[in-house]
Design a protein around this nucleic acid. Structure first.
Length: 270
DNA sequence: AAACAGGCCTAAA
DNA sequence: TTTAGGCCTGTT
């Protein structure tokens, strides 16, 4: 399989991008490359010298990966803009190389429903099982991978059909979300053109989607950068570094990126 | 064995 | 408006 280079600035560290908790379908190989399935494609990405290379064609890069890896934004500059104090300086230096992916909206919604009260290995396992059972096969270098199933496909199932996936009490949440998306009752594309409050209101109206899951979906797939997901790691970080309270609005449209730096720093060092 | 994991929901103050 | 307990399942 041929490769193409992804032209990017210095802020592109695959290990951090895929390891900072925003996605669940990229895995590191023994040689340090990453294999994953995203946006209907299977691909392998590696770093060599100063360059980033990914399997596929120039057309794949311009039509999919350029946007997926958020290449139009200058993360070095963004990283500077969130340094509001010494702690953020430390956290953002440590997280240099993180980028916020623009992921498939439905897959992100479904994945973060699964994430609730779960650990990362099991989240990944459930997402893989869902894909293998209900997604479509795609080949990469002689190996078969499976795309994430469409909302329409899952909408045709009932919660009981998900029992082999072992997602427990989240099954009815997944089916309800699939039906909302497939029917057009929940229009994720349209929501991405609204604002944080509007998107959050629409998402949390669904069963099994609260403040935290909604914030992740908004940040990682709706491109609304002011979203600021607070999970158990973030609670620890905020309690330690901002005991008098904290308002993410100090970061404005970059609150979500600030959150990623805090989260990654806390999880790796906390 | 019992507790916990990257929440959410409901019932009860 | 805030708080406790339960929830599928897998792991420690």
């Amino acid at each position: 399989m041929k490769e193409v280079e992804i032209k990017t600035s210095d802020d592109f560290d695959p290990k951090k991008i895929f390891g900072c908790g925003q996605c669940f379908r990229w895995n590191e190989n023994p040689d340090g490359s990453f294999t994953g399935v995203a946006m209907g494609k299977a691909a392998r990405l590696r770093r060599e010298g100063g360059g980033i290379f990914i399997t596929g064609t120039e057309d794949d890069v311009s039509s999919v990966w350029h946007d997926y890896f958020d290449l139009d934004r200058d993360y070095r500059r963004l990283r500077e803009s969130v340094c509001v104090d010494g702690y953020m300086r430390l956290a953002s230096d440590y997280g240099a190389g993180i980028r916020i992916l623009n992921q498939d909206r439905w897959e992100t919604l479904c994945s973060f429903i699964i994430s609730q009260c779960n650990n990362i290995p099991r989240i990944k396992k459930i997402v893989e099982a869902l894909s293998r059972l209900f997604g479509d096969p795609v080949e990469l270098e002689g190996e078969t991978f499976y795309t994430f199933p469409s909302a329409e496909r899952l909408a045709s199932l009932s919660p009981g059909d998900l029992s082999p996936v072992r997602c427990g009490y989240r099954a009815p949440y997944i089916i309800a979300a699939a039906r909302a998306v497939a029917s057009g009752g929940l229009d994720l594309d349209a929501l991405s053109k609204t604002d944080l409050a509007t998107a959050k209101r629409a998402l949390t109206a669904l069963p099994g989607i609260g403040e935290k899951v909604a914030s992740c979906v908004i940040l990682f797939s709706l491109r609304i950068g002011s979203a600021f997901p607070v999970d158990v790691w973030m609670k620890k970080a905020l309690a330690r570094h901002y005991p008098e309270g904290f308002d993410p609005e100090v970061f404005g449209e970059n609150a979500g990126l600030a959150q990623q730096y805090m989260f990654y720093f806390q999880r790796e060092n906390g």
